[in-house]
Structure formats: C-alpha cells, structure tokens
C-alpha cells in the first residue's frame, strides 16, 4: 500500500507547469476555498467573508470548468481501459455534454445532452481512425470498418434507449395519473421507488373511504338505503369528496361518479373522469370496482348481522 503522499507524488504531482495535474489541483484548491467560505458562513455568520451568489456561482463554474478540462486532458494522455475497451471516448463525451449544456448549477442535465452522449462518444472513438495527420482523411482498413460500424450502430441504439426513457417521462408528465398507475404488467417499463400521490388517486381514495364509512359495520338495511339514495342522486358524492380535498389543482375538470353494477349484490364502480387540460391531450378515466359483502368474521348472533364490508380492487386507467 502506498501512502497518500506517495500516491500524490506518483499520480497527481505536476511534472511540468502546464499539465492536466495542475488544472485538477487548481480546481481542488478552488473547491477547498469554497468549502472554507461555506463553513465560516455557517459558524461565524457575522464576521465571515460574504460572497455574493453570483460570485459563488462564478467560482463553482470556473472550478468545474478547470476540473473538466483537467479530466479530459488526463483521459487524452492516458485513457482508462477495461480490458481492450477504452473508456476515453465515453468520458470525453460526457465531459463535453456537461460543459456545452451548462446547467450544472441547477443539477439538471437536459434530455438532449443525455441523448447526444453515446453518439458523441462513438464519434470521438471513430474520429482518429478516419483522420491521418493534420488535414488528411482516410478510410480505415477493411478489418476495422465493420467494428467501427457496429460501434456506431450500438451507440445509436444506446441513444434511442435514453431517448425512450425521456419519452416515457414526457408521457407521464402529460398524464400524471399514468405516473401512479400499476405498471407491473408492462413489457417495457418498471417502477423505481414508490408511486407518487396524484390528484386522481386522492379523489378515488377519498371516494372509497366515503363509501366505506356508509358500509363498513353498518346493517344490510342501511347499506341498501344508502345505495338507493346514491342511485337516485339524493347523495351528491362528488360534492362530498371534493369538499374533503382542498388541494386538487383543476377541481372543475374532475367529475366523480358511483354506479351499482347491475345484477350484483352489490358491486359498485367508482369513476373519476378528467377532461383534457390542453389541446392535443385526451380525456381520461380512473375507475375502481369495489364489492360490498356481508362481513363473515362477524358472529351470527350479533344484533347488527349481517353487516357490510367494502373490498376494493386496483385502479384502472382508461383513455376516452
């Protein structure tokens, strides 16, 4: 094991003034300076050196620029390899995408930068093969052509995958309810993390709990009375639900409806319909089927027997 000092002397100590090690070290010093300023502001807010936000941004930007150029330079001089495969084009391309689409400060890398990254990497890998000397182009030898072709096509496919990921994201932004939909049967996508809470989900959940309040533990007679009133429109379930939920954004676009499925005793279907917010998008419908059944866990000699119990299935998303 090399000590840190030995490691530094071997890997990071500049061999000459104008080298990639210098750039990386200068950027590290800038980071150190920023860290000191930040800590002093945290602990001694009154006496500390006050940096304006723009100055701070300029500092961060320039140290990132130095770091990127230093890393790129290092990669050009001695690229990292995994077996026979050089990582240099990929790292150079990533740095170029980060620098030319400068949203580093917000932490958001635009879709275009992601999508262009593999294609640019393939371009960087292919470029030295078709370039000879200062200004001469050449056709690479026959053995290399097919490999370069496969590299180019593979990077195009990688870009397509990234593009597809952004397309899926775009869809879930257009139809937020799809972001919380059940995707377990899809052949294309998986959910990473938890489903977000959406307006439609809240509306359905509130409707279910509203109905559950009238059903769970109630006598069969009162359940039937409730359903009868619901069917005749004497109970305005939409108003009740919406009064409970004040945080819904487009309140006027939602409509809630509960239907009794014919020839069942009793299945109810809950619908939450949303009309499109803008042209080019479609109306959609969230629906849920719930069963009202006698509670079998209840002792038969109880006075309330048979009491009801509400049991709901998963939510369906449908375009209209």
């Amino acid at each position: 094991m090399a000590t840190p000092v030995e490691w530094f002397n071997k890997n990071l100590k500049p061999k000459k003034l104008f080298s990639w090690q210098t750039l990386i070290l200068v950027s590290l010093v800038l980071w150190l300076f920023l860290a000191i300023v930040y800590l002093s502001e945290l602990y001694y807010p009154t006496e500390a050196l006050q940096l304006e936000n723009e100055d701070r941004d300029a500092f961060i930007r320039s140290s990132l620029l130095l770091l990127s150029v230093g890393l790129a330079w290092w990669q050009i001089e001695n690229p990292i390899r995994i077996g026979n495969f050089s990582l240099r084009p990929w790292i150079l391309s990533a740095l170029a995408c980060l620098l030319f689409f400068p949203s580093l400060l917000t932490g958001e890398i635009p879709a275009f930068a992601w999508i262009i990254w593999p294609i640019l990497a393939a371009g960087i890998a292919i470029f030295p093969k078709v370039r000879r000397g200062k200004d001469k182009w050449q056709v690479p030898p026959l053995e290399e052509r097919s490999q370069l072709l496969m590299l180019g096509l593979s990077s195009l496919i990688l870009s397509s995958w990234l593009g597809f990921a952004f397309l899926v994201e775009h869809w879930t932004q257009d139809y937020p309810e799809l972001a919380s939909a059940d995707v377990s049967r899809s052949n294309f996508v998986v959910r990473v993390g938890n489903a977000p809470n959406t307006d439609g989900k809240e509306i359905l959940d509130q409707t279910v709990s509203q109905i559950a309040g009238e059903v769970n533990g109630q006598t069969w007679g009162s359940i039937e009375r409730f359903l009868f009133n619901l069917q005749l429109g004497r109970v305005n379930i939409q108003e009740q639900v919406m009064n409970q939920l004040q945080g819904i954004v487009d309140r006027d676009r939602w409509s809630v409806q509960v239907e009794i499925v014919p020839e069942t005793e009793y299945d109810v279907r809950i619908f939450a319909r949303k009309t499109a917010t803008s042209a080019g998008r479609s109306d959609y419908l969230l629906s849920k089927t719930c069963q009202i059944r006698p509670d079998t866990r209840m002792p038969m000699d109880s006075p309330a027997y048979p009491a009801g119990m509400l049991n709901c299935k998963s939510t369906q998303f449908t375009f209209e």
Binding site: W161, N187, F188, V190, R191, V192
Partner: peptide, 14 residues
C-alpha cells in the same frame, strides 16, 4: 427522471 424507467425495454431488447 421519472420513477418509471424503461429498464425492461433495454433488457428485453438486448
């Protein structure tokens, strides 16, 4: 990125 990712697409296509 959204929490819905096309990882199955990538695996299946590969």
């Amino acid at each position: 990125m959204s929490s819905i990712l096309p990882l199955k697409t990538i695996l299946l296509q590969t």
